[in-house]
Write a protein that binds this DNA or RNA. Structure first.
Length: 583
DNA sequence: GCCGTTTTCGGCCCGACTGTTTTCAGTCG
């Protein structure tokens, strides 16, 4: 198994889980989790850093010990400490932590008293009425555990951002109509635009006596109320998505929004900053003693800490505080800066709408160009185009460009990258296109070195412009392919081709970390809708969210450029230099 | 396990909610 930062991060996360169940020092557990986060968000491969003689213990949260463990993982692919922990603890014990209300202490209690080793053991113990006999567990607790196990087994865990966002918007609109509610906002990972969200976090400010909690917990579509106090409540919606609501006074709204937006590591880092300045930050404000010095808006809190306001997408404690202090925060790309979309399907392959309908829908959204990129012949299930059908589509597009105004259609294809890295259509037809978008649609399971070689070879084809959805992941369905992203990005830069950030809600691929690596290495990213119907140009917005999480500015994005410039850049990938085009 | 314009030891963010161990520990975000 080839080394990846993600694999090393997974090792540290598992060690943290196991130490936690074992009742280990909570700060030691956190140290492993921090290191996992550092690795996952690292712009470069730790393996290459070691090879270059760099000290890993210069990285935040990584000291001598963990640097040594990373070196061990790089060298051997495993970690002695993890192997030892796995031997000491039963496989499956950490899944008990996924049950609400069950933490490390209760897992230990259940294991000690009943010998529970996994979810199935616990379920059996609950069904047999043995849990109520354990100290600290009542008959009610036993029933709750059983309910939680059943709920866990049938609900999906995280939902795509695009699924949660409209649910949150609907709830927010309802809360805004409740008497006494002054301000309401979405917070949490949804506001930070993570690709998936575990629950929906909502915040409102309201005067005393507002019935907002009652309305929230008693609303339509509420399946279960998990908790309900005067300032905080949690419900589960029909369909299994959890929603948390927090109510604060108006004067605390900004501090609460900051706190409730997270991420947790960002909050911890901010609170530490406050501490160092002799202040205390909590969800009610920034305090000097009992005096509130800031808190009505997020800006006021950041400003009082000597910082500019930070975009929510950046709040992951991955360098944004340093950047803010140095006044070097990125000017993140915005949806309205996209001028075109370089991955669009029509009913010629598996799209639902015709060429003309797609063109008009794109124009109506304010785009000035789109690339028509239907599938190639290999993808028979998508009615992929062979050379003959593609040639006819090319002629059709030429003719249609004569008629259209305000939008230009670029001639492209989403060509399959075959197992050996060859492309699924002959060069003679690819040569006639404005751009070639290559994608993997099969054999996702190749070993990392073969998958990497496959992608590199595809990019070396004389006509290759953009690598589409490079990891080929499907959120909740298919893990990303194993390949050496850094090598692929470096090759793309040398070859002069581009990487796609696919905006389909279950793809979002490149992911945020990969975007940041592309930015660092200097490869332009094409944010694409991969629209298969006229309504799907909206997917561009999900792509923009991930791009922003990846610190991308307009200058890092291919399709923020005007048509003439994009043409020049694409021509170069197709072996047509500027001189050749004009001659 | 990490970290350090007080430091190589002794800290490590802070508060709400729940259940139950009737004064607080465990869990969560």
């Amino acid at each position: 198994m080839a080394y990846s930062n993600a694999a090393a991060a997974a090792v540290f996360d598992e060690i943290a889980d196991l130490l936690e169940v074992q009742g280990g020092n909570a700060f030691r557990v956190r140290a492993y989790r921090n290191a996992a986060r550092t690795l996952a968000g690292l712009g470069r491969s730790a393996k290459e850093m070691i090879a270059a003689g760099e000290d890993l213990d210069d990285l935040p949260g990584i000291g001598k010990d963990l640097a040594g463990k990373i070196a061990e993982i790089v060298a051997t692919g495993s970690c002695v400490q993890l192997d030892a922990l796995r031997k000491e603890l039963p496989e499956g014990i950490t899944e008990l932590l996924r049950l609400p209300g069950i933490g490390p202490r209760r897992v230990q209690a259940l294991r000690g008293a009943l010998g529970v080793q996994c979810l199935a053991d616990l379920q059996a113990a609950a069904e047999q009425g043995r849990i109520r006999g354990v100290r600290g567990f009542s008959r009610d607790a036993e029933r709750r555990i059983l309910d939680a196990i059943i709920a866990l087994l049938k609900t999906q865990r995280r939902v795509p951002l695009a699924t949660a966002a409209p649910m949150a918007a609907a709830l927010l609109a309802e809360l805004q109509t409740v008497a006494g509610v002054q301000q309401a906002a979405v917070a949490g990972s949804l506001r930070r635009r993570r690709d998936t969200v575990g629950d929906i976090d909502l915040l409102v400010s309201a005067g005393r006596g507002s019935p907002v909690m009652e309305r929230f917990a008693g609303g339509n579509g509420v399946q279960r109320v998990l908790a309900k106090g005067s300032t905080r409540a949690s419900i589960v919606l029909q369909g299994g998505v959890q929603v948390d609501l927090r109510v604060v006074p108006q004067a605390s709204f900004g501090a609460a929004l900051l706190y409730f937006t997270g991420s947790k590591p960002h909050n911890i880092a901010l609170r530490r900053l406050a501490q160092e300045a002799g202040l205390k930050l909590n969800e009610y404000g920034l305090f000097q003693g009992a005096h509130r010095v800031a808190g009505d808006t997020e800006e006021s809190v950041y400003r009082a800490l000597g910082l500019p306001w930070i975009d929510p997408e950046l709040r992951e404690d991955s360098g944004e505080l340093d950047a803010a202090r140095a006044d070097r925060l990125p000017h993140l790309v915005r949806l309205q800066e996209l001028r075109g979309d370089l991955h669009v399907h029509t009913s010629d392959s598996d799209g639902r709408d015709s060429l003309r309908v797609m063109a008009e829908a794109a124009a109506a959204r304010g785009l000035s160009y789109i690339a028509v990129t239907d599938h190639s012949r290999r993808l028979a299930i998508a009615h992929g185009l062979d050379a003959g059908r593609l040639a006819r589509q090319i002629d059709l597009i030429d003719a249609m460009n004569e008629q259209l105004s305000g939008i230009t259609l670029l001639k492209g294809v989403e060509v399959d990258i075959l197992k050996d890295g060859k492309l699924d259509l002959p060069g003679a037809i690819l040569q006639r296109l404005d751009l070639v978008v290559g994608a993997v649609h099969e054999r996702f399971d190749l070993p990392a070195d073969q998958q990497t070689a496959r992608l590199l070879r595809a990019m070396d084809h004389p006509y290759f412009s953009i690598l589409a959805h490079p990891a080929a992941r499907l959120l909740g369905e298919r893990e990303p392919c194993a390949f050496d992203l850094e090598r692929v990005l470096r090759h793309a830069r040398e070859r002069g081709c581009f990487m796609e950030l696919n905006g389909q809600p279950t793809r979002l691929d490149l992911d945020d970390h990969a975007c940041r690596m592309a930015r660092d290495i200097g490869v332009l990213v094409s944010i694409a809708s991969d629209a298969h119907g006229l309504l799907e140009f909206g997917h561009l917005d999900w792509g923009v969210g991930q791009a922003r999480r990846g610190w991308l500015e307009a200058r890092h994005v291919l399709n923020t450029r005007p048509l003439e410039e994009v043409r020049r850049l694409l021509d170069a990938t197709m072996g047509r230099s500027e001189a050749a085009v004009t001659s």
